[in-house]
């Protein structure tokens, strides 16, 4: 088996708050996983808000260097300090969809300019008609069209439209690895399903691997092959997505699943969480512990 992506014992520390009241944040602690080149998969990252998911994605994208450990993509070390040519070659193979589309787009730049420059860079063509066709095809895949998008600035689009434009842009170079940070958080259930089905068909038909960061356990269950669950910088559980979600083992994973809101009691205003579960999930949060393999193939962090 050759590896597409190899994340080896990666950690990231930040110093927060500048010169006043410095505080070190351990955003990611000792994360390891790898994706195979032959068997494309949807690899999902779920977990606590602030647990390091975006930081991990940014390191894989070479936008942030790990404080410790290293990341290899197709055997090459991913680095923020790559040359421009290396960077371009890398970006033609690894494309991001960032978390908040309202932040990802420059408000003064028309949407089509993003798509256009991506098309130009990666398709090595200046032919207007060809570029337009590629842009329109990418937009059609997410339920939009070039006609709808042309001439418009980011603030002239709805949240879901913007989010879909970000996905369309990332699809243009046909990259073998797509890193999507909450790509469907702002679209309705119907569109959400059509976008996750798109990710599925990218995997199945075009052999694209996808890192799918999400808070939505239902779509994670529906499309992922494997997943990791993160809490405060650490992977606490990792394994086959359905094995883990059907019967989570780490206390935080259990709390996560139990906290999913249900519609069965619509109108009853149920927002309470079992305090015992919360306590169990947070009790060991500072400790390192270690990941231990279970007979069913998943790994669970255990302590003491």
């Amino acid at each position: 088996m050759t590896t597409l992506l190899d994340v080896r014992n990666v950690s990231k520390h930040f110093t927060m708050g500048g010169i006043f009241g410095r505080k070190t944040v351990n955003a990611v602690m000792d994360a390891s996983f790898s994706l195979s080149a032959e068997k494309p998969e949807i690899f999902t990252i779920i977990g606590e808000s602030g647990s390091g998911k975006t930081t991990l994605a940014r390191m894989v994208l070479g936008l942030e260097d790990p404080s410790e450990g290293e990341i290899l993509f197709q055997g090459q070390k991913v680095s923020r300090h790559a040359s421009k040519a290396e960077r371009l070659a890398f970006m033609s193979k690894v494309q991001p969809v960032f978390q908040n589309p309202f932040e990802a787009f420059n408000p003064l730049k028309k949407i089509e300019r993003y798509l256009e420059s991506t098309a130009r860079q990666f398709l090595h063509t200046k032919d207007r008609a060809a570029i337009d066709r590629v842009m329109d095809e990418a937009l059609q895949k997410v339920g939009l069209s070039l006609k709808e998008v042309r001439g418009r600035f980011p603030h002239e689009m709805s949240g879901g439209q913007l989010q879909r434009c970000a996905i369309a842009r990332a699809l243009i170079p046909n990259p073998p690895l797509l890193i999507t940070d909450e790509p469907v958080s702002m679209v309705d259930a119907s569109l959400r399903m059509s976008i996750v089905n798109l990710l599925k068909s990218l995997r199945d038909d075009l052999k694209v691997s996808v890192i799918y960061i999400t808070h939505d356990l239902a779509t994670a269950y529906y499309i992922s092959n494997r997943l990791i669950i993160m809490q405060r910088g650490r992977i606490v559980e990792m394994g086959d997505a359905r094995t883990v979600l059907d019967n989570p083992q780490h206390p935080y994973s259990k709390l996560l699943k139990a906290s999913v809101l249900s519609t069965d009691d619509a109108g009853a205003g149920k927002l309470a969480t079992d305090p015992g579960m919360v306590q169990a999930a947070n009790g060991l949060v500072g400790e390192a512990g270690k990941l231990v393999m279970r007979p069913d193939g998943r790994e669970v962090r255990v302590y003491g």
Binding site: I46, G47, E48, S49, S51, Q99, N100, E182, S185, M186, H215, L217, L255, L256, S259, V260, L261, L271, T273, V278, A281
Partner: peptide, 9 residues
């Protein structure tokens, strides 16, 4: 939209 289900609750 950007919150895990525990914090969301």
């Amino acid at each position: 939209t950007a919150l895990d289900v525990v914090v969301q609750k």
